[in-house]
Write a protein that binds this DNA or RNA. Structure first.
Lengths: 133, 133
DNA sequence: CCTCGCACTCACCCTACGGTAGGTACCTTA
DNA sequence: TAAGGTACCTACCGTAGGGTGAGTGCGAGG
């Protein structure tokens, strides 16, 4: 992502979103929170991710210090990925957000699956009808 | 964003990230958490956002039900944006993440400002010949 | 009269994010 | 001998996310 890279984050949220803002990043964290996993396992767990993206995101997460990469120099290559304490703390910080998303996910899915309502009938030129949150 | 749009979210985190995953979304939420603000105010608060993105993100957040848009039909147009209860709950859910980011933001900034280390000396493809383990 | 500010809209452009496909070095199994 | 698995790398390519700049309708200020 790197939305505001190479300059100061405003409130910390930027930083966090920056770390976690890839397409598969949160899935990776989520999956790794179950425990150590190797590359192929992750690939199978995420199901749909391309190897390129998996590696890329793993590298970024490693670089950010949230995942640990352990290479075993054995004949069929074996690499274990796991969360660092940093990553665990990140996962903890993400938990409320996950709960929020879980709680409202059906609603959000519904919104996103509507064929684009464009329900701005009451825009700058219509009756200010009663709306409710 | 819409990383996995029109299909089920895996763990709720996807959904949340989807809502909040724009470049300025979290900043918007953060800014709006201070209270009702009008368009120009937001523009000045975020400082650097283009009007297009501001509107776009505001629209998306409105569509997701996290911000409320109130149009006053006065001669110089006046539009007030505020958080809905939904948005407030989202902000609450984001707070730990913000705290996490705040706590580690210097570290993350440092990582992101390093001119790309590529410190993988012991990789799988480092020494092409001498690797018999 | 000209311009500015508000709150947008529209058109164009460019980057980077993400996907696809093919290749690598080594060993195991059929 | 061929196929397959492991953990990658590399090049190419399409799209969408984001940026720039102009225009709009209206009143206020210089």
């Amino acid at each position: 992502m790197s939305k505001s890279n190479s300059q100061s984050y405003v409130c910390g949220l930027d930083a966090a979103i920056d770390v976690v803002g890839g397409k598969w990043k949160v899935l990776l964290l989520w999956t790794l929170s179950e425990g150590e996993k190797r590359f192929g396992e992750l690939k199978r767990c995420l199901d749909g991710v391309s190897e390129k993206m998996l590696i890329q995101h793993l590298r970024e997460l490693e670089r950010d210090g949230v995942v640990h990469r352990e290479v075993h120099h054995v004949v069929p290559p074996k690499v274990q990925y796991s969360l660092t304490e940093f990553g665990v703390s990140l996962n903890d910080a993400l938990r409320p957000l996950g709960a929020w998303g879980c709680e409202h996910k059906t609603r959000l899915e519904a919104i996103r699956n509507t064929p684009d309502d464009t329900s701005d009938a009451e825009d700058l030129a219509a009756t200010p009808a009663s709306r409710s949150a």
